[in-house]
Design a protein around this nucleic acid. Sequence first.
DNA 1: CTACCGATTGACT
DNA 2: GTCAATCGGTAGA
Length: 201
Amino acid sequence: MYRPLPREFYNRDPIKVARELLGKLLLRQAPDGLTAGIIVEVEAYLARNDPANHAFRGLTRRNASMFGPPGHAYVYAIHSRWCLNAVTEPVGVPSAVLIRAVEPRQGLSLMRSRRGIDDPRLLARGPGRLCEAFAIDRSLDGCDLTVAERLWIADEPTELPVRIETATRVGVTSAQQRRLRFFVADNPFVSKPGRPRRRTI
DNA sequence: CTACCGATTGACT
DNA sequence: GTCAATCGGTAGA
């Protein structure tokens, strides 16, 4: 239990990884304590033909982690917030899954003090809020997610099977047509449910 | 060096 | 629903 998912889990098509990350447990061991939550919303960013991918125009200092081995974190900043991705596919193939929201399960008081709010639904709903609640910043860019040290993802055996819905990605202005956002149906911790039109898989 | 632009959030109509 | 604050990353002079 809470053993990190193996490297091979991430060494696959990011769409498959994204779907299977739903229901998994994200764990963060920070100096001030442990926080954990069930992943309920993700987005896939593809290595090919995906203009929304930060790596679409090639390797830069920011996106270097996406070109590295699968199973590592890619953390980047936008609008003064941090966002967490899990890198997928082999070295040189820059794809990733953005973790957009989790349902808090452990360390709620720590999350509340970091976020400055009480409502559990707002603690980690949205990629920037999630990183604030979990104390994730650029220092975790490149962190190996397959070792249980600072940041990892594990199976949550007690979690019931979930119904998955798809939608277009949030905030993406190019490649809008693709339904690369995946989230747990009817879960109140999802950042933006439903969106264009619903389709249950 | 400057200029532009978000894989966002929170406040507001 | 709309809107803008805000700042690191990137491209280009």
